[in-house]
Amino acid sequence: MVKNIRTFAITGVVAALALAGSTAAWAQAAGTEARVVDVGSGVVDAETIKEGLFPLEHCEELRKNGFKCMGVKPTVTFSLPAVAFAFGSAVLPQSLMRQLDVFAEVLSANRTLPYTIRIVGHADASGTEEGNRVLSQRRAEEVRRYLVSKGADGGKLDVAGVGSKDLLKPDTPTSADNRRVTLGR
């Protein structure tokens, strides 16, 4: 399911997540800010996405079910697969659509929550700075368009393209792993 986890300083305690039967990835996290989960080629389940994007609501669910919430964990930014976008393209392949279907399910089921989801497009360093920024913006917009077509509230989806400024693999700037989209809060 979740292939690779990069942790960037995480807040809160995640013991409540282990009680709720969350993935092993959650149980490994603890720190002070937010984290990025590289989804890889797997499809993350709806519960994991919900816990990652809306952690306060998960804590409320635990309380309603008689569990003590041991702290608030940080939100998660999900990095969707490097293989998603062909070189120079913003076309969504089937593998990415399968992943986005689960995100759309979670987002449409939680339309009343007051949160904005940020969709950030990325590019490898193959092109010019301006070309990469435009391409990464198109990738983010395509993901937004797809999520809205599947029932997500477009007013709660913010898009940005960062070009090749935030490489997943900075040691190999032209790697396909750097062509991705992230979704988080």
Score class of each variant (00 low, 15 high):
residue 3 K to Y: 14
residue 3 K to E: 15
residue 5 I to S: 12
residue 6 R to T: 15
residue 7 T to V: 15
residue 8 F to M: 06
residue 9 A to C: 04
residue 9 A to L: 09
residue 10 I to D: 10
residue 11 T to H: 14
residue 12 G to Q: 09
residue 14 V to F: 12
residue 16 A to R: 04
residue 18 A to Y: 03
residue 19 L to Y: 10
residue 22 S to W: 01
residue 22 S to V: 03
residue 23 T to E: 11
residue 23 T to I: 01
residue 23 T to V: 01
residue 28 Q to E: 10
residue 28 Q to H: 00
residue 29 A to T: 04
residue 29 A to Y: 00
residue 30 A to N: 07
residue 32 T to F: 07
residue 32 T to P: 00
residue 32 T to N: 07
residue 32 T to I: 07
residue 33 E to K: 12
residue 33 E to S: 13
residue 36 V to E: 11
residue 39 V to D: 06
residue 39 V to R: 08
residue 40 G to S: 03
residue 40 G to P: 02
residue 40 G to Q: 05
residue 42 G to M: 01
residue 46 A to W: 08
residue 47 E to S: 06
residue 50 K to N: 04
residue 51 E to T: 02
residue 52 G to R: 09
residue 55 P to S: 01
residue 56 L to D: 03
residue 56 L to N: 00
residue 60 E to H: 13
residue 61 E to K: 15
residue 61 E to G: 09
residue 63 R to N: 06
residue 64 K to C: 09
residue 64 K to G: 13
residue 67 F to H: 14
residue 68 K to L: 13
residue 68 K to T: 14
residue 68 K to M: 11
residue 69 C to I: 06
residue 71 G to Q: 00
residue 73 K to V: 04
residue 73 K to H: 06
residue 73 K to T: 05
residue 74 P to R: 09
residue 76 V to K: 07
residue 76 V to Q: 05
residue 77 T to Q: 09
residue 79 S to E: 14
residue 79 S to Q: 12
residue 80 L to A: 04
residue 81 P to N: 06
residue 83 V to H: 11
residue 83 V to Y: 08
residue 86 A to K: 14
residue 88 G to K: 13
residue 89 S to Y: 09
residue 89 S to C: 05
residue 90 A to S: 15
residue 90 A to Q: 10
residue 92 L to G: 05
residue 92 L to R: 08
residue 93 P to M: 07
residue 93 P to R: 15
residue 95 S to F: 04
residue 98 R to L: 13
residue 100 L to Y: 04
residue 101 D to F: 03
residue 101 D to K: 10
residue 102 V to Q: 05
residue 103 F to R: 08
residue 105 E to L: 11
residue 109 A to W: 02
residue 112 T to H: 08
residue 114 P to K: 11
residue 115 Y to H: 14
residue 116 T to N: 06
residue 117 I to W: 00
residue 119 I to H: 00
residue 120 V to H: 00
residue 121 G to V: 03
residue 122 H to E: 08
residue 124 D to P: 00
residue 124 D to R: 00
residue 125 A to Y: 04
residue 130 E to C: 00
residue 132 N to A: 15
residue 132 N to I: 02
residue 133 R to F: 07
residue 133 R to Y: 02
residue 134 V to Y: 05
residue 135 L to M: 01
residue 137 Q to G: 05
residue 137 Q to I: 00
residue 139 R to V: 03
residue 139 R to P: 12
residue 140 A to T: 06
residue 140 A to M: 04
residue 142 E to D: 07
residue 142 E to N: 13
residue 142 E to S: 15
residue 143 V to F: 06
residue 144 R to G: 07
residue 145 R to A: 14
residue 147 L to V: 05
residue 147 L to R: 10
residue 147 L to W: 08
residue 147 L to H: 07
residue 147 L to Q: 07
residue 149 S to A: 14
residue 151 G to F: 04
residue 152 A to L: 09
residue 155 G to V: 09
residue 155 G to E: 13
residue 157 L to I: 13
residue 158 D to H: 14
residue 159 V to G: 01
residue 159 V to A: 05
residue 162 V to P: 09
residue 162 V to M: 05
residue 163 G to N: 11
residue 163 G to E: 11
residue 164 S to A: 15
residue 164 S to C: 14
residue 166 D to L: 13
residue 167 L to R: 10
residue 167 L to G: 10
residue 172 T to W: 07
residue 172 T to S: 14
residue 173 P to M: 11
residue 175 S to N: 13
residue 176 A to S: 12
residue 178 N to W: 11
residue 178 N to T: 11
residue 180 R to C: 11
residue 180 R to S: 14
residue 181 V to T: 15
residue 182 T to S: 15
residue 183 L to C: 13
residue 185 R to P: 15
residue 185 R to F: 14
residue 185 R to W: 15
